[in-house]
């Protein structure tokens, strides 16, 4: 049985919340990019908004938008989050350390539960079916999507809301700033992919998708969502080639390739050049200069791929190399050095 993406919504550092590719990207000289947030008061009832952390607002608002765009109300919710509810986790951790331990407010503890968002969405939209949260860094979105595909195949669900979310965290920014993971100096994000220096810029985002067992008018099929632990023992190219075989596809079938190039002098080419060469005639698209780097960032690419398959033109600012064919089948490849991830979507 096939799975179809029947609606999508993306909150990102670009103006994507309006549902189309922005004509011009937001550019800034910075070490990180934060979401271009909507006025949450217009979207989330004030009684809910009051005790909500940043990530909960991001996620709940984007879930509302995605559900509103969907012709079918989802019966299940699956959220993938790379690092989880880090903001309130850090707040409560700090409160425990600074003390006194006997007098702590439970609110940040409640909001630090990584499945709080999935639970809040269930409550807000009264979705009482299957409710799952994956917390596994760069593979979180891919686990969530493949679980949704399995739910549809089993007949447990007719339409599942899948979300991918990560929030900016000053602590993560500080902690992971080893091994030249982040840029040391602010850079204009549109110059990022020149990859002149080591490191990426950090970002955040929330992408939601309604996955249904029946296509809508756009007929966008979610073909594959795969991930693999990367211990450096097996060549990426072989893994991707084997996956194409498994789904009865050849390299010629792929019209557009989204790569997770993040502007890192040290790893961009080793991570992506081999995969790019596998598809010499495909259009190659990139997105991390628009969104920054975060674990579930492939949701940005998935949203863009859905827009392309819905007939919108891939903007020049996201095009690394223009191919000649109309994009009907699109492959997304991301490699964060601990896992590799592939998503395939196509126009049915």
């Amino acid at each position: 049985m096939a799975s179809y993406i029947i609606s999508s919504a993306l909150l990102s550092p670009q103006k994507t919340f309006e549902g189309t590719f922005p004509e011009e990207p937001i550019t800034t000289e910075s070490l990180y990019l934060l979401c271009a947030e909507p006025d949450y008061k217009q979207i989330i009832p004030p009684v809910r908004l009051r005790r909500m952390s940043h990530i909960l607002k991001m996620g709940l608002a984007t879930s509302y938008l995605c559900i509103n765009e969907s012709k079918v109300k989802p019966d299940s919710v699956i959220v993938g989050t790379g690092q989880g509810c880090t903001g309130d986790l850090e707040n409560f951790m700090r409160a425990c350390s600074e003390g006194p331990e006997e007098l702590l407010s439970p609110i940040p503890f409640i909001n630090s539960g990584h499945n709080t968002l999935a639970g809040q969405i269930a409550m807000a939209s009264q979705i009482k079916g299957y409710n799952m949260t994956y917390l596994q860094e760069a593979a979180s979105l891919e686990s969530a999507l493949s679980d949704a595909m399995l739910l549809l195949e089993e007949g447990t669900s007719e339409c599942t809301l899948v979300g991918a979310i990560d929030e900016f965290s000053a602590l993560s920014f500080k902690i992971f700033d080893r091994d030249q993971y982040w840029r040391k100096e602010a850079v204009n994000n549109l110059d990022l992919l020149k990859a002149e220096k080591p490191g990426a810029i950090m970002g955040e985002g929330a992408g939601f998708f309604c996955i249904s067992n029946r296509p809508d008018r756009q007929n966008i099929e979610l073909v594959a969502s795969e991930s693999k632990m990367n211990f450096g023992t097996e060549a990426s190219v072989k893994w991707v080639t084997d996956l194409l075989n498994q789904y009865n596809l050849t390299t010629n079938d792929i019209d557009m390739l989204f790569v997770g190039r993040k502007g890192d002098l040290l790893t961009d080419d080793t991570s992506y050049a081999g995969i790019e060469q596998l598809f010499p005639t495909a259009t190659i698209a990139a997105y991390k200069h628009l969104s920054g780097e975060f674990p579930t960032v492939q949701s940005v690419a998935l949203w863009m791929a859905v827009k392309v398959l819905s007939g919108q033109q891939l903007p020049d600012y996201a095009t690394l190399k223009a191919g000649t064919r109309t994009a009907k089948t699109i492959l997304l490849y991301n490699n964060d050095l601990s896992t590799e991830n592939v998503i395939i979507v196509r126009k049915g």
Binding site: G113, N115, A118, N131, L135, Q136, F231, T233
Partner: peptide, 11 residues
């Protein structure tokens, strides 16, 4: 272990 890996977090 080399197969696919999933991590669930639902408290």
């Amino acid at each position: 272990i080399n197969g696919r890996q999933y991590t669930i977090s639902t408290a």
